[in-house]
Structures are given as structure tokens and as C-alpha cells.
Simulated scan of single mutants.
Amino acid sequence: MNQSNQLRASSTKSSYIAKSVMSSAVIAALLVSSGCATSSLLENENRVSSKTVTNVLSEDQIVAFGRPAQPIPNLPTGNMVIVGEKNSYVLVQGGAEMVTLLTNLTAKNIQVENDMSFEVPNNDGYFQGQMKMSYAKLKDEFQRSDYQFFLQNGGQECTSASDMRMNAQRFCFSVPVKGAIYPQVSNLSLIQSKYRALSKPYTVTFYNRTAQNEVTRSGRNGAEKLILLPFAVAFDVVTFPVQLLDSIAN
């Protein structure tokens, strides 16, 4: 083979090697890219599956706030009852604190948050959440005993700019509560006929949280029914004074 042929053969071989190297690099890049895409997809799927969906189990119109007329078996005394059109919601923790606040503070100065929403983690008849209210009046109307009451019952100053412009002062209360869901009270008709309705709609909502992938598999969409306590029985309730009922919703 002459020198010219040798040069051409060497050039062809070098070109073939270069193309092979480039092909390998392209394939490796594609594999890496594919792997990244697959990893990203898996991460996205993991993120999706870890999300939760809030399911509203029930909404009820509040009729009154009160206390059981007689002790309820297997429950502590001093409970507060949220009387609903559908069911009764007995506060087994935090009820005594709410009764203390609602019966010792001047009714016309009390404001309870309209957004009353409680979680029912296992939909087994037990709920939990926070009840929030505030108490406000003109600064010169407060007495030393008022401040002492706030200190003893967890009141926190939350005076707003609007309150300050009116020379008023406001204190907020947030009471952790747990409760049990009972059937409609026995004397609901008497309560509705004897007392005025609240001055505006007042709703209590119950919900739980479900993993998104569980919702997809089961087809549940939040239209589940709220489960009452097993063997729960109805009872009579004694409502708070009508003036308090009316002021709470204002």
C-alpha cells in the first residue's frame, strides 16, 4: 500500500472513531435526560400523592348556645352545647371555659367569629378545633376587675386601629375545644318557638382531610355523611339568655 492509500485509510478510521464517540455521547445524554425526566415524574407523583383534600362532611345552622338540662352520661359536667338544626354538638373540652366567658362578660360587647369550623379526623363522632371571640368597649368603661378577668381567662389584647379611633379597647379569646356529636336536642321545637332566631345566619362546619391518592382510588369527593357517636341519645338543653344569643351573631 502506498503512502497516499495509508493516509486515506487512517483518515477513514479516525472519522469512524469520532462518529462512534459522538453517538455514544448522544446516547448517554439521552439516557441521562430520560433518567432525569423519570426522576422528575416520580417526584411529581410523590408530591401529588402527599397532598391532602379537605372534605366538608356537614354544615348545620346554629339555633342556640346552651347547656344540657341534665348531666349527660359518661361526659364531664359544665358542658356547653351548640344547638344545631340537624344535630347537637357538645363541647367536652373547653366548654366550661366558653360558658365562663359567655355568662360573665357583658353580652352586648361580645363578638364570636362567624367562621366556626371543626375537624372530625376519623369521622367517628368526635371533633376538635378553636372557638374564637372578642370583647370590646370604651376604655373608660373598663375596671380593674375586667383586666383581672382577662388575665385569669387567657384574654389577649387585640385592639384594632378602628377601635383606637373610637377610644375603645378589645381583648381576644381563643379556646381549644373538643366535642362529641349527638342527635338533635329533644326540646328543639320549644327552643325555636320560645326564643328569637339569631339576627343573621350562623353556620357550623365539620370537615376531615384525606390523602389525594385515596380520594382518586375510592372516588370519594367530600359528600360523606357526618357520623354521630354510636348509641348517642338525645337530651334537653337549657339555652343562654336570649339577649346573649342575639348579641353573639351581631
Rank of each mutant, 00 (worst) to 15 (best):
S4T: 14
A64L: 08
S199H: 08
S23H: 04
Q184V: 15
Y135E: 09
T77A: 14
I82W: 06
K194F: 00
G78S: 14
S58V: 02
G219V: 05
L42H: 10
E97Y: 07
S88M: 14
A18M: 00
S24P: 01
Y147I: 15
V48N: 05
T38H: 09
V90Y: 03
F65Q: 05
I27N: 10
S49P: 04
R8H: 08
K132M: 13
S145D: 14
R8W: 01
Q143C: 03
N167A: 14
L102T: 06
G35Q: 07
A9Q: 14
S34D: 05
S117I: 13
F206L: 15
A37H: 11
N187Y: 07
R165E: 12
Y147W: 15
Q148H: 02
N55Y: 12
Y16F: 02
S145H: 07
N87R: 09
G179N: 03
S117F: 03
S40N: 14
F231E: 15
T203S: 11
I72R: 05
S174K: 12
S11M: 12
A161K: 13
P76K: 10
N44C: 15
M166Q: 10
N79W: 01
S218R: 06
R220M: 10
D124C: 01
F150R: 03
I227R: 00
D115N: 15
A29T: 04
S88Q: 12
Q93T: 03
K132V: 13
V32Q: 00
T54E: 14
Y202T: 08
V21Y: 06
Y207I: 12
T216W: 07
P230W: 11
V32A: 04
V99K: 09
T159A: 03
T239S: 13
L105G: 07
K86N: 04
N250I: 01
T12C: 02
G66E: 05
Q156T: 15
E214R: 01
K51E: 15
R47L: 12
T203L: 13
G84M: 02
S174W: 03
G179I: 10
K19T: 07
V175F: 08
I227D: 00
P68K: 14
A18K: 06
L101R: 12
A18Y: 02
L91P: 07
M98R: 09
Q93F: 00
A211I: 01
L101I: 08
N87E: 09
R165Y: 09
M22S: 09
E224M: 13
S34F: 06
L198D: 00
T38S: 12
T103W: 06
V112C: 07
A25W: 01
V242P: 05
P73S: 13
Q3F: 10
R196A: 03
Y182R: 03
F206I: 15
A64E: 10
L101V: 11
E157N: 15
G219F: 01
D115M: 12
N167F: 09
Y202I: 01
A249G: 04
M164V: 12
N250K: 02
C36N: 01
A25Y: 04
E224V: 10
S186C: 06
S20M: 01
Q152F: 00
I17M: 00
A232P: 12
E141K: 00
D246C: 05
A25L: 13
V204I: 15
Q184L: 12
A18V: 00
T52M: 08
S39I: 13
A136E: 11
F142C: 05
A136H: 04
A136K: 05
V92H: 03
N213H: 11
K51H: 13
Y89F: 14
E45Y: 11
S199G: 12
